[in-house]
Amino acid sequence: MLRLEEVEVAYGRVAALRGISLEVREGELVSLIGANGAGKSTTLKTVSGLLKPAAGRVTWDGQPIAGLSPREILRRGIAHCPEGRRVFPHLSVRENLMMGALLRRDAAGIAQDLDAMYARFPRLQERAGQAAGTLSGGEQQMLAIARALMSRPRLVMFDEPSLGLAPALVQQVFEIVQEVRRQGLMVLMVEQNALAALGLCDRAYLLETGRVVRAGSGPALMASADVREAYLGGRAFAA
């Protein structure tokens, strides 16, 4: 289980997180929603070790992980699929996937997972030898997800997985996220598409200017008037 308690993070003098507390329990899909600059991505970066909290506690299975390197955190089973896909554009699709398995030493298991990824994403197999930068946006997103899964994580964090994709692809990405959860992985997802994020998740947190302002089940947050007003298209949606 992942737990953040009163976590504070600052970029220089600018506070980005002002005491965030949240948790992801075994088998859960948790969404973070909120406006730009609310601290959603910062929260994920803090969990994966790219940012160090100035205060507060981050624990994973009860062990403190705040301040560890991204490498150590990945080794403990938390993978971060970053915003904007961030595939390595001049590495081949296959090399990108192998980068996801960089810390693993079980060659047989890696080969097996590679086959599983190719079976799930046939487009990636077709383009295995091609530079990742030549893929379409949707294909790059699939690659980024598959790359994160290649580390065999117990928790995957997706940052805006549907950003910039065509509607049909958005649907596909959300299906994959659900599949990942069904396989028993914990998922922590940041999504600007609040409607989809709330529909998918077990629980969600609404962030505003670095604080959690509301938490609850997906339907509960969807029903709350201020969430609807601010993020789901207001009364038009309610009607």
């Binding site: 991204p70 970053p82 961030r86 554009p89 980068m99 960089l102 810390l103």
Partner: peptide
Amino acid sequence: RATFQDAEAAALMGV
């Protein structure tokens, strides 16, 4: 080469 292309993403892979 991965670090060459995107150091932060490489760090997330455990580099």
